[in-house]
């Protein structure tokens, strides 16, 4: 049996994401990569914490002046929900229901774009109302770098999921592409994990002062 073989419901295994050796390697390699990403984001968080509210003069906006609960809350809800929808997609993948999987992935993508749009609005707002920019202070540099790195991950995740959806739209699920979908969804969850820390450490702790 080859990975690219045409699949039927009867032949579909219980964990299609780990059937071939390639799939097992991909699965493990991607988890290890996430271990490295953990350190990457930790370094960015560490830098942010060290430079939080470090500004050149008293007229610069600080964290407690900038962040507002409603926007951060909305962004959080959207991204958390997109995590659930991608779980739904993987649920249908395991049941060999390609159409439904695509549908839930589509919803995930839409939520992802919603999140990005809000983030862009947020940055725009800080720049134009507070003069809080990437270059205005060390605080600004650290803030935009941390949150922007996360945003870039979201954007990359979207491009990745869309590519997978389009590429496989006509040919359905196989043991060749199931691991690809699975790994992309892991990535999406990881992005969510990072966001949990961003909303807690940057936004909530920022508002506390």
């Amino acid at each position: 049996m080859h990975a690219e073989e045409k699949m039927t419901l009867e032949k579909w295994p219980a964990s299609p994401e780990k059937q071939t050796l390639e799939a097992k390697n991909k699965f493990l390699g991607f988890w290890l990569f996430l271990g490295g990403e953990t350190v990457l984001f930790a370094s960015l968080f560490a830098t942010y914490l060290a430079l939080k509210d470090k500004v050149p003069g008293p007229d610069h906006a600080l964290a407690k002046d900038l962040f507002e609960i409603p926007l951060a809350f909305l962004m959080t809800m959207i991204l958390l929900t997109s995590s659930l929808t991608s779980v739904y997609a993987m649920y249908h993948m395991k049941n060999f229901e390609f159409k439904k999987m695509q549908l839930w992935l589509g919803i995930t993508v839409i939520l992802g774009f919603g999140f990005l749009a809000l983030e862009i609005y947020e940055f725009y707002h800080y720049v134009h109302h507070y003069g809080h920019t990437f270059t205005s202070s060390a605080f600004g540099s650290a803030f935009y770098t941390l949150v922007g790195f996360h945003g870039a991950h979201v954007a990359f995740g979207l491009a990745w999921i869309i590519t997978l959806m389009v590429r496989n739209a006509k040919r359905g699920l196989s043991l060749y592409n199931a691991p690809k979908f699975y790994v992309a969804s892991l990535y999406w969850h990881f992005i969510d994990v990072v966001w949990v820390f961003i909303f807690s450490v940057v936004y909530l702790m920022g508002m506390v002062g």
């Binding site: 830098t47 060290a50 430079l51 470090k54 500004v55 050149p56 990437f134 270059t135 205005s136 202070s137 060390a138 605080f139 600004g140 540099s141 650290a142 770098t145």
Partner: peptide, 17 residues
């Protein structure tokens, strides 16, 4: 970023370290 894009991570005058 500091050298090419004007950020201030290591610029003490702007709060960097």
């Amino acid at each position: 970023f500091d050298r090419l894009f004007g950020s201030n991570f290591f610029v003490t005058a702007a709060g960097g370290n």
